[in-house]
Write a protein that binds this DNA or RNA. Structure first.
Lengths: 368, 368
DNA sequence: GTGAAAGCGCTAACAG
DNA sequence: CTGTTAGCGCTTTCAC
């Protein structure tokens, strides 16, 4: 925004301040002048603070109205020692899951009077660090982190500088990460997916894990394996493939798995995007879903229900997680400045359990 | 962020300022103290301004390093009379097109040192207004508007308050909207789509227009119609349907169109999402694409290439538009404060032309 | 070259 | 009830 009034030169101390024309932003003092009181009083009226006479209050409100006054957020932030935004770190907002989450976060933040800054880290820890250092504490009061491949080191430093950090989707409720987080029981999600497939009668299942071996999707795969074992099945390594967490990744992995073992009657993917890729692979191979091949994913992104056939998946409470994350962040912000580093284990909020959503991509295997 | 140091009480004027421990944010004066100079000098060093001796400069840089100093963005903004962010208004970031655009905008903004605030208006002008009034000029230096259903009135007011506004995807380069904008020749996009279908030999084409009659997609439809007419065909009203700009909308409209006229061999949709819906409708009706039905969209969102069959579409230069929009916004910001309202027609930047991208969803119609 | 001082717009403590 | 005042952290003239 432009400088509203020529800056007063040193020495012009007694020059009358030029009132802003209607063109530009009105300030508190202008409102005050018009209402015949001081800025402090206007401030009090606006924030319902301190006692103000009814007559004055009216005059102030009129002036505010007449001048279209809007508080200057940066100024207010500075004076209050708080910042008007929260930051959401994601690897790329273009990943189809994030926008749904970001939307929920924005709503939650907004309802608490804060704005949302989107930070795309591009999976690059350097970028993440740059973002954290620049805005945490100076422009953003706190930071929400969605798998963005950040250094924990950097996150702790961010906390130390006074800007709380919340991890938005921790996958292992029982193994807290050493940072406040919202945890979703993804192990259970994997279990549910496996159980569904088992109940339908599948015995030859391929698994597409949308990350490196020990990566973010490991818990989901563990749950899947556990369910298999509980049913007396084993999970030979040639039936698992680690792939990029994208449609492409799922597509290639599925083709590869089916090539290795044409007997597979189902594909379990640790995320919806790769599951969608599996659907495409099936289509390209002339396999009918679910008759020839069943496919199940995890998350329940919007695309899942829009795919053809619609994707069976284990739904994760995205909106709930977003709301919990924002609440938790607020709590941490409100709590004593140096609480987080001082106290013991940081807080972990667990969302409600993932739920199976049966759609058209799963069914009983061909018999024979 | 927390208050870093207990606010000095009135009367404690001579109390020594508590230096921030390593826990919290360092300020300019702390750096100055450590470097044995004044804040002004530190500021000068950091912004390469004013002459500073090499020795001092070194000491300052060391101190900055040692204390991990980061400028306070809100404070800087206030002092400079500018804001550190730009705002992107969208109806909902969850609409699959926006994230791709937002990503490009964020990159462009970031490379110019600004952060991106995402504002979901939810198609509600009230919400849009609230956003504009609150952040424009106080937290955001300018506003980028992506079809968010905002009142032009509000946008003009925003400009008048000193925060430039840029419309990001104006559909009619030749009919400027009275606000600065980036225009994409969507009429031409419609034309290209129609020509492609015509060249393949289609004569019975259904059109799904992803908005109200006079809505945002009207130009695309005009281009389509023009191409048809140029080929000597007419476009009977029963072959057009206006629908929501979503997969669902496209799905329903396509079914309806095919019910009205089973002879249709192709569907033209004014956007990719409805086109994807058309694909699903075809699948559900047992029609093979493209043998029984060809489908073409406009935009080329990521999903288009991931769909099965992959969607033929007319690609719009999204990244280019994002970059132009950010550049234009910056120019307006840098330009004289009250330029925009003063001068004549606001600037219009036109992107390069849309381009046909042929994929698997279009082909020659069955003969017979 | 470097420092002193005013000011950005707003808040909060305290005095009247 | 209302005004005075100091201060948030930084920038920027202007003197020295």
């Amino acid at each position: 925004m432009p400088q509203m009034v020529p800056r007063l030169q040193a020495g012009s101390k007694f020059q009358e301040i030029v009132p802003n024309s209607e063109y530009f932003m009105t300030t508190l003092s202008e409102v005050a002048r018009r209402a015949g009181c001081t800025p402090a009083t206007v401030s009090n009226v606006l924030r319902n603070r301190g006692r103000v006479g009814e007559r004055t209050r009216q005059r102030v409100l009129e002036a505010v109205e007449a001048l279209g006054y809007q508080p200057h957020l940066a100024a207010r932030a500075l004076a209050e020692g708080r910042a008007p935004t929260i930051a959401l770190m994601v690897s790329s907002i273009a990943n189809p899951f994030y926008p749904e989450f970001a939307l929920a976060v924005e709503r939650a933040a907004r309802s608490r009077g804060q704005f949302l800054i989107i930070c795309n880290t591009n999976e690059d820890p350097q970028m993440g660090r740059a973002y954290l250092q620049q805005i945490a504490g100076t422009l953003s009061e706190g930071v929400l982190v969605m798998n963005a491949n950040l250094d924990f080191e950097d996150l702790h430093q961010t906390e130390a500088r006074g800007a709380p950090v919340v991890l938005c989707m921790w996958e292992r409720p029982l193994q807290p990460p050493g940072l406040p987080c919202v945890a979703v029981d993804f192990r259970h999600a994997g279990e549910l997916a496996a159980q569904h497939l088992l109940e339908l009668g599948h015995r030859h299942i391929g698994a597409v894990v949308g990350s490196k071996v020990s990566g973010i999707h490991a818990a989901r795969y563990e749950g899947y394996i556990d369910a298999l074992r509980a049913a007396g099945l084993d999970a030979p390594p040639e039936r698992v493939l680690h792939a990029a967490d994208t449609t492409q990744g799922g597509y290639r992995a599925t083709r590869e798995l089916l090539e290795r073992d044409p007997q597979l009657t189902a594909i379990f993917a640790t995320n919806d995007l790769p599951a969608l890729g599996a659907l495409h692979a099936a289509a390209d191979l002339g396999l009918r879903v679910p008759d020839d091949l069943s496919v199940i994913g995890i998350t329940d992104i919007q695309l899942a229900q829009e795919a053809r056939p619609a994707l069976t998946t284990v739904a994760v409470p995205t909106v709930e997680a977003a709301e919990l994350a924002v609440s938790l962040l607020r709590e941490l912000i409100e709590a004593s400045p140096r609480s987080s580093s001082a106290a013991g284990e940081p807080r972990v909020c667990v969302t409600s359990a993932p739920k199976l959503v049966v759609r058209a991509s799963t069914g009983a295997p061909r018999t024979g």
